[in-house]
Design a protein around this nucleic acid. Structure first.
Lengths: 203, 203
DNA sequence: AGAGGTTGTAATCGAATGATTACTAGGGAC
DNA sequence: GTCCCTAGTAATCATTCGATTACAACCTCT
């Protein structure tokens, strides 16, 4: 297992808000890779190049850290979508594809989409479940109310997104070059950006 | 958290193959609800109404138990699809919808689809990853080679499946009656079977 | 300069959990 | 009946991990 690294060594003293962002980015990568339960605060700390107690103290608990990661991920996703929506007239039927490209571009932010997806799989958890459902619905409403999608369009868009999340979660891109069926499937799922998954898998 | 129960109390002595199936069914429910790491062998044991050491000894390790659950789930899924494929002529364009109904009917088997989905999110794990990728590709090949789907049809079908898995993982059905947006979204995602998610959420 | 708040770590604790060991009881073959 | 394999449990161990405590170093304001 490639242990995640986000921040590098020199233990510089910095403002807590800067450190907080570093830890959140590291945590997204770790939670995305190992899931909420499988991720350890120690792995997050190592990825952010700080000590484990510091991670815990800054966020209180591991659960609170995960919630903060989810909030950050969702805020970034929604901000990205709004940029695209603002650049189109309401009825532009190119919009779904353009927002789709924005979605795929978020894959470059390690763990951002996967942390959300990990949360979606924990809907039975009494703490995470409500947050996850509310977050998913926030995206649905954005597509319907701000992007002007019909319920069917929004659902189709989200289906493609969940498929991409799954393929990334599977690390299917790692087999892009060696397995022709993988290449075929990824190309069908992400017509213009399939090679991106291969490159992400190499990180 | 509603603790899972599959088998009931009377500690009857039974053939190990029967007990094995009970434990696998219980394990699927528990893994589906809590994920691979979050599930404990003790929770599986309680759900199957046996002792924790018995679960471990029968499968060797928790990892081996999870692999057995995945194999069982995938075998059932593929068997179900093949029944539908066998009942159609190759070019029947009703086939995708019919297989889709088979897929939804698998939701009645608690944790079957969710265990698979949990595995899909652990592609970075050195043990689970290869199994998960191979399993996903097995389904893709089945759709393409046996059901006669084009790569685009297969991908679209799988996208819908991943969307359903996500909605079930989110326990979105629990809000079916109280949130009109949830109802709208679920109806768009599963035109004829949305109410099934509500009922599953009540279990 | 030094007081006090902020940033950070080392050491350690307690609970949870997968696994192991040692043991008990049922039931079929002869 | 009794031998012995199979089915099953109670008790316990070793590890992992989130959390806590106590302490050290740095910066800033006066």
């Amino acid at each position: 297992m490639s242990s995640v690294t986000i921040a590098e060594a020199p233990p510089t003293r910095m403002k807590s808000e800067v450190r907080r962002e570093l830890i959140l980015a590291a945590a997204a990568a770790v939670f995305g890779e190992r899931g909420y339960v499988g991720a350890t605060t120690d792995a997050v700390a190592k990825a952010a190049a700080v000590s484990q107690p510091y991670v815990v103290r800054m966020f209180g608990t591991k659960a609170a850290l995960f919630q903060a990661v989810l909030e950050r991920s969702l805020d970034k996703l929604i901000a990205e979508f709004r940029v695209e929506i603002a650049g189109h007239v309401p009825t532009d039927d190119e919009l779904p594809m353009c927002i789709g490209r924005r979605y795929v571009s978020l894959l470059a932010d390690r763990g951002l989409l996967l942390s959300l997806m990990q949360a979606f799989m924990l809907g039975a958890d009494p703490e995470i479940g409500p947050t996850a459902r509310a977050g998913f619905l926030r995206v649905y409403r954005l597509l319907r109310d701000e992007a002007g999608f019909t319920p069917e369009q929004a659902t189709e868009f989200l289906s493609g997104g969940m498929m991409i999340n799954t393929l990334v979660g599977l690390r299917m891109g790692a087999e892009f070059d060696t397995d022709p069926e993988v290449r075929e499937m990824l190309t069908a799922a992400m017509p213009t950006k399939a090679a991106l998954l291969r490159d992400l898998a190499r990180q």
